[in-house]
Design a protein around this nucleic acid. Structure first.
Lengths: 339, 339
DNA sequence: TATGAATATGAAAACGATTTCATTCGTTTC
DNA sequence: GAAACGAATGAAATCGTTTTCATATTCATA
């Protein structure tokens, strides 16, 4: 492989001048610039990234932490983040923690060893005090997931509101026995939605019933399981709030198979507004999350932090959620989207 | 940030000895080793990745090229590849070409600039002669997608067979008017499946009908569109082969909504064996692809190539596909999986 | 015509690791 | 008792850039 030294030799110039041409620095005569560019072309020269990273103390790589990419919500987040990073000349390394605190800490060493310039956490598996020490090595930005203790920029969605509007929608339609599904106990996203859920119940003078709570539902298969668990209860719920469209779809699928009518026997609300919501019959009422905007903002912020080198300091950027009403809650009646 | 020099100073030893401890080299007394480890701990020292990459001429990063990650097939591939890479101490950079030849070539510079040690192509957007020159900079391994001209290791699935068994299944059930859906004209995966499709037709003395061909179907929405296009034909097909479960699900969803019965009025075969196949009612007959095995093999191969530094040479590793029979082709009759 | 910019170039020192080559001890071995 | 060998250590070169200085030239200005 040709190095900058080879180009220097071929042109009879110094490495300095070659470097100036590469980096578009001033004070290079047009004559030499041409000469250098030709030599680079001829040798097939291209600057070595490792050498640049070492000298410039930056890698132009970001790390994105997610539990697993096969969750469509995170697929969408990765897609948007990769595109946004690319627009800034950054590459994206994927870190699947698979809900393991150890794996998460292990991936954090990417920051410590300077293999990446910054870390975007879209999920959090450790207490903040375990993660905080890494801040001395580079910026950490929270995106989607959040932590009240974390003194770093956070790009998030108003999940309390999301849980609230979805639940209120069910309450307005007369339901009083509403089950609650979420993914994970540790997640503050899930906790916030539950707060919104409870808030809506409270407004209707209802209390949260722990028997109706299922906090370990992530996939389609979990939805199917939960449906049967719900139906095994002495007092069956007439509606269910879920933390993801996959879970909602699983519930609906199994309910239909068991001869239940949706939404007459069971109304279902999903979350995420995935393509799957338009697939089932009935289609799924859900909450739309502006993932692209969130990802774009997170990338903008982290690049700013990389440049200013100020990593600490809480900043919250919050985007709104939107209820999308479909047939899984309102049946064949006329329905419309509401904000 | 502490450097190796700081550790050397604190211990009164040379950089050489510190490096020996870091890399577990022989000829370091137990006494000094302890001393060094303590000093590293005390200083919070950790080796700088860029410096190591430069000196060792390796980054421990792989690049994975895919069209877009929100396609569940590629999500699954990324998940498996990231895990396999991690087991070998490699990180994974995601490159979404979004079906653009220019983007693909642009990402290829990661190899040229030595930002990654190797490239795994799970999709191909350029003619091989455009990609071949990059082989001088590092290994390229094809995984899933393939190209007859490419003189590099290829890990693939027997797509001709996949197209064949799915189609034969429909033929055996008496269908003679079978539509064909695939994703992309450029893909050799799609082309191979079509060969298998045609082969099965030929065995039943049937010819391929171009009016029944839809080669631009990727997503759920495409499936819905295709359903209506099929039904607008003067002679409507009674069965349809699709290149993805999403498309199959889209077709089924729209068919049911239009009052068609599946499979009585229209039998549907999907591809990929995604979770979605168990969601629809009826469940979807599909072709299972051993994605994890394929990803694991691709990673093993590329790491071997990185080590041996021999990049050229065709090697084909092929994994089998398997038909999974479900209700979208056999209705309520008793059905079973066949190999 | 001397003076001070502005322009153009290069030598050498970083960046932070690893590796080659010497060197210094002990210990065997003949 | 000298030669040979293995263990333990360090000085300095190296990986391929960028940047800091220093120097040389040109050119306008007083």
């Amino acid at each position: 492989m040709a190095t900058i030294e080879d180009v220097a030799k071929l042109t009879g110039l110094s490495r300095t001048t070659i470097s100036r041409v590469i980096n578009d620095h001033p004070y290079v005569s047009e004559e030499k610039r041409k000469l250098v560019l030709e030599a680079m072309e001829k040798l097939g020269y291209v600057p070595n990234s490792s050498a640049r990273s070492l000298r410039n103390q930056k890698t132009s790589i970001l790390a994105l932490f997610i539990p697993r990419i096969t969750n469509p919500f995170f697929s969408e987040l990765v897609e948007a983040t990769e595109i946004a990073a690319g627009e800034h000349g950054y590459q994206l390394i994927i870190c699947q923690t698979r809900y393991s605190p150890e794996k998460e800490l292990n991936y954090m060493n990417l920051l410590k060893t300077k293999q990446v310039d910054g870390v975007i956490l879209a999920s959090i598996q450790n207490e903040w005090k375990k993660l905080k020490p890494f801040l001395q090595y580079g910026p950490i930005v929270l995106c989607n997931e959040f932590d009240d203790c974390a003194n770093v920029p956070t790009v998030r969605l108003d999940q309390v509101y999301g849980g609230y509007i979805a639940t209120k929608h069910l309450l307005e339609r007369g339901h009083t026995k509403i089950a609650y599904c979420s993914g994970g106990y540790r997640s503050n996203v899930a906790k916030s939605r539950e707060i919104g859920f409870r808030k809506a119940l409270a407004e209707y003078k209802l209390t949260f019933d722990e028997r109706y709570a299922f906090r370990d539902a992530f996939h389609i298969a979990d939805g199917k399981r939960v449906f049967h668990q719900m139906m095994a209860l002495s007092e069956q719920p007439t509606a269910v709030f879920t933390g993801s469209d996959e879970v909602a779809a699983g519930i609906i699928s199994e309910a239909l198979r068991s001869g239940y009518r949706i939404p007459e026997d069971l109304a279902v609300v999903g979350f995420d507004n995935q393509a799957i919501t338009e697939l089932t019959n009935p289609t799924i009422t859900t909450v739309h999350q502006p993932v692209k905007q969130m990802a774009q903002k997170a990338v903008d912020i982290i690049i700013e932090k990389i440049q200013t080198k100020k990593y600490e300091g809480k900043e919250i950027y919050e985007f709104p959620l939107q209820l999308i009403v479909r047939a899984s809650t309102v049946g064949s009646e006329l329905h419309e989207s509401e904000a």
